[in-house]
């Protein structure tokens, strides 16, 4: 899922001082799962903003709404009346949601209330970890399900780099060395020999280097 993190309330409040009707809009999918932008975070953000704006001498109304998703036109439409009634929207959705809200409600200002951080999963309560870099050419089977693009600090295709110590990365002693994990897993599977084959240089045009990407599913495209 997409993982996001709350912004400092002051960073948001500073952009709102000239508005009277503010809507804090949450998204009940990925950002709700990572506790950055669901209904509960909308209520917390709205309450904090009301106080922060009052302390700035602003008399603004801060309303709250949460869409099932802000990245689907049909579901955005369900919150359209609240958005239309507001002067400005603070979106707690990921960057995709904020962009879609801009496309739908232009020229209404939509201010991001969270930072979209990575594609990952919940390792345990309160901890989310990056697991995919969306590089557009998945070969994770070669590395036993551990993506070296997302999890190696240097995104090495043929690792390890030699900088790791006791299975930890040289950039952060708390960070597992991805290549240490790959080797240990392949060893346990008795498939360490698969690493004898050199992985050729990657074609990064499928990733961000190829510019903004698009996916077409022809049989449903209209």
């Amino acid at each position: 899922m997409i993982v996001a993190q709350a912004k400092d309330i002051n960073e948001i409040a500073d952009k709102l001082t000239n508005y009277e009707k503010i809507l804090v809009a949450g998204c009940a999918t990925c950002v709700a799962e990572c506790m950055a932008g669901g209904e509960k975070e909308v209520a917390i953000t709205a309450s904090a903003l009301r106080m922060a704006l009052r302390l700035r001498g602003c008399q603004a109304q801060v309303a709250e709404v949460t869409a099932d998703r802000q990245c689907e036109w049909e579901l955005i439409e369900e919150i359209a009346p609240q958005v239309e009634a507001a002067d400005v929207v603070v979106s707690l959705a990921c960057g995709v949601g904020v962009a879609c809200m801009w496309d739908r409600f232009e020229p209404k200002p939509i201010i991001p209330g969270v930072n979209t951080v990575f594609l990952g999963h919940r390792e345990k309560p309160g901890l989310w970890l990056e697991r995919c870099a969306a590089c557009g050419d998945c070969t994770i089977d070669r590395t036993a399900g551990i993506c070296p693009i997302a999890r190696c600090a240097k995104s090495l295709q043929n690792g390890p780099c030699g900088g790791s110590t006791d299975g930890k990365c040289e950039i952060d002693p708390e960070l597992d060395c991805a290549w240490h994990l790959i080797i240990e897993r392949l060893k346990a599977m008795n498939q360490l020999d698969t690493l004898r084959e050199n992985t050729p240089p990657r074609d990064w045009s499928t990733s961000r280097d190829g510019g903004p990407r698009r996916v077409v599913v022809e049989d449903v495209e209209e």
Binding site: D8, I9, N10, I44, A48, M51, A52, L55
Partner: peptide, 8 residues
Amino acid sequence: RILEQIAV
């Protein structure tokens, strides 16, 4: 933390 941020 939030209350510190907003100076309450």
